[in-house]
């Protein structure tokens, strides 16, 4: 068993390396500076979202509503600035909205005990519906003059490195610090490993779970800001896309077991690189959007099957309603 477990990251990394090498050799236009930039920029947002998802998955949950957190609060920032509010006020509103959203998620999961998959599926719809019905005038919220300077969050370079990559790196460091250096990071691992044992030990599991979803939503919002800054608009329809599956793919492929308690930031980075390469390669090969989804789905399926063999569900601590 042990032999398999510590190998998974390395297998994924090896697959990434092989894929990268193959694409570089056989795919024209793959190993060009511009394409690398695109790849990394696309990957950055995905990676940040992956970090948020990883945080929740390690605590034995899942957050389907991340895309709503990515789309709606940053969209709100753009919309408010467009309507003449100041940037800081708009940002503050968005952050408050995100916190409220995370609290709702966390409360539903920790206190009302709704399964996380289910709760976040519904709250995601709720937030997206709210945005659609009440907040935005158009599906794509445009950049306006009040946002001047903010695009530096997603564009340009810092010390020669594209800013979005730097943002991803910053997020990685923050999450790694939270998970490895703080007490509640350790609590998250404990809760993910065995929620009942964690609770019996005296860990305040409910507040920690709430915190987990608040932080995840906050990271999602940050990813959305980076994304909006890099494309100079917020396409709120992104909620309808299959982006969330990519995020799950990143986490599961990277080797963070869905049964919780395992994995870390490194897994997210590896997963992100693999997915980024794969998606980029397929785009260059001119595979249609549906075809890409098909391939992604199959890969995800294989990943989940492998995951279920490598990290079998613990029947003793798996809940009855744990679907």
């Amino acid at each position: 068993m042990k032999r398999f477990r510590f190998n998974q990251q390395e297998i994924v990394f090896a697959v990434f390396a092989v894929l990268f090498l193959a694409f570089s050799i056989f795919l024209r236009g793959f190993l060009t500076p511009e394409n690398m930039l695109t790849l990394l920029q696309n990957v950055a947002v995905l990676g940040i979202l992956g970090l948020a998802m990883a945080l929740v998955v390690i605590g034995r949950g899942i957050d389907i509503s991340l895309i709503a957190a990515l789309a709606v609060p940053p969209g709100l920032v753009l919309q408010m600035v467009q309507n003449g509010h100041s940037l800081p006020a708009s940002l503050l509103t968005a952050v408050l909205l995100t916190i409220a959203f995370g609290l709702v998620n966390g409360w539903l999961i920790a206190y009302a005990e709704v399964p996380s998959l289910f709760a976040t599926l519904a709250t995601g719809l709720l937030l997206a519906g709210l945005g659609q019905a009440a907040l935005f005038q158009l599906d794509v919220v445009q950049w306006s003059d009040g946002m001047q300077g903010f695009e530096r969050l997603g564009q340009g370079t810092i010390l020669g490195v594209p800013t979005s990559i730097v943002m991803f790196a910053i997020a990685c460091v923050v999450v790694a610090f939270l998970l490895r250096q703080t007490r509640w990071g350790a609590y998250i691992y404990a809760i993910g490993d065995n929620p009942y044992a964690a609770r019996v030990t005296g860990i305040p599991s409910r507040p920690i779970i709430v915190l987990q979803y608040v932080v995840a939503a906050q990271i999602g919002c940050f990813a959305g800001l980076v994304m909006a800054a890099s494309v100079n608009s917020m396409p709120t329809r992104v909620f309808n896309s299959t982006l969330i599956y990519d995020v799950i793919l990143v986490v599961v492929l990277g080797g963070i077991g869905l049964s919780g308690g395992r994995g870390g930031v490194l897994n997210v980075i590896i997963g992100t690189l693999l997915i980024g390469t794969m998606l980029n390669g397929m785009t260059i090969m001119d595979i249609s959007y549906a075809g890409q989804n098909l391939v992604k789905g199959v890969v995800l399926l294989l990943a989940v099957i492998t995951d279920s063999f490598l990290n079998p569900r613990n029947e003793e601590t798996a809940q009855q309603g744990d679907i």
């Binding site: 599956y245 799950i248 549906a290 989804n293 098909l294 789905g297 995800l300 989940v304 099957i305 679907i323």
Partner: peptide, 30 residues
Amino acid sequence: VLIGYLRLRAFITTLITLIIYRSAFDLLIQ
């Protein structure tokens, strides 16, 4: 087969088949 015999999680598995079937449908109607 995936959920019953391979004992995968129902939610995540059907979420994936949702994408796969939907992509297949998109390809077919094109």
